[in-house]
């Protein structure tokens, strides 16, 4: 049981961004992808989610054997258990957090079945308290006027509520001060389980001190070029990416 990506190539317009990427995240593990800006890290997250701007040219992605790309609409993939916490979460004017998450949960129920409102709010408040999100936020429009840290906490709140099988966290540490980073990491760590896999995309090793990965991958120019344990992250932090790139003479 895993989230398995094989030889994935993908474009935006005519530009090839992923150039044969392979990666397998077994259920129960946390994998990290590190890489420089422009290496294609965020693209990977969006392609897995089904963003309409990207075109998959080749390769496969399966989630516990389920063909991800056979599900055309992003909402199908979400309901099948995939969650992506975005680097820049969208503001949705007029839609409150409570209504938003409720609609997302409702969408997972069989036709004709209604979400129990009382249970829902109890669940929501519990998760909000854990993430130290003021309960007043339930009536705020999604991400509208939120600080960077509030947006990221809101992403983790949604993840906790939707209970995905595989979660991709795209630069969840960006824009967070150290306190917020701790809260967000605690939220993620609380969700670590043998029944769930995580892919943590990050620029900095700092996040991986809090969310300790089982495997670290290095991404260069649309491919995974090196994998190792958490010590690889420290080495990258200390020495930069140049040495990795030098080991890859084939990459122009």
């Amino acid at each position: 049981m895993s989230l398995k990506i094989e030889n994935l190539t993908a474009n935006i317009g005519d530009r090839e961004i992923l150039k044969g990427l392979s990666l397998e995240i077994p259920k129960g593990q946390v994998h990290a992808i590190m890489g420089k800006n422009g290496s294609g890290k965020s693209t990977l997250a969006k392609i897995l989610a089904g963003h309409p701007d990207y075109e998959v040219k080749g390769g496969t992605a399966t989630m516990d054997g389920l063909d991800l790309f056979a599900m055309e609409e992003p909402d199908e993939r979400s309901r099948a258990g995939l969650f992506v916490a975005f680097q820049y979460p969208m503001e949705i004017p007029g839609v409150t957090i409570a209504n938003f998450i409720r609609a997302a949960l409702q969408a997972r129920l069989p036709e004709g079945e209604e979400l129990d409102a009382v249970e829902y709010y109890e669940h929501l408040y519990r998760q909000m308290d854990a993430l130290k999100i003021d309960r007043k936020f339930t009536s705020r429009a999604v991400n509208e006027g939120f600080s960077g840290g509030e947006k990221k906490r809101c992403e983790v709140l949604q993840m906790a509520m939707l209970n995905p099988v595989y979660a991709v966290l795209d630069e969840t540490d960006s824009g967070l001060d150290i306190d917020a980073l701790k809260i967000v990491s605690d939220g993620v760590n609380a969700m670590r389980s043998t029944e769930r896999g995580f892919l943590v995309i990050t620029h900095y090793q700092r996040l991986l001190d809090y969310i300790v990965p089982d495997v670290v991958h290095v991404m260069v120019d649309g491919r995974i070029v090196l994998s190792g344990d958490k010590t690889l992250a420290h080495k990258l932090e200390a020495e930069g990416y140049d040495w990795v790139e030098k080991q890859q003479p084939a990459l122009a």
Partner: peptide
């Protein structure tokens, strides 16, 4: 379209 995509990623149809 970006906002719609965001909502769809949460499981909500277009």
């Amino acid at each position: 379209a970006e906002q719609i995509f965001y909502m769809q990623q949460r499981g909500i149809s277009e």
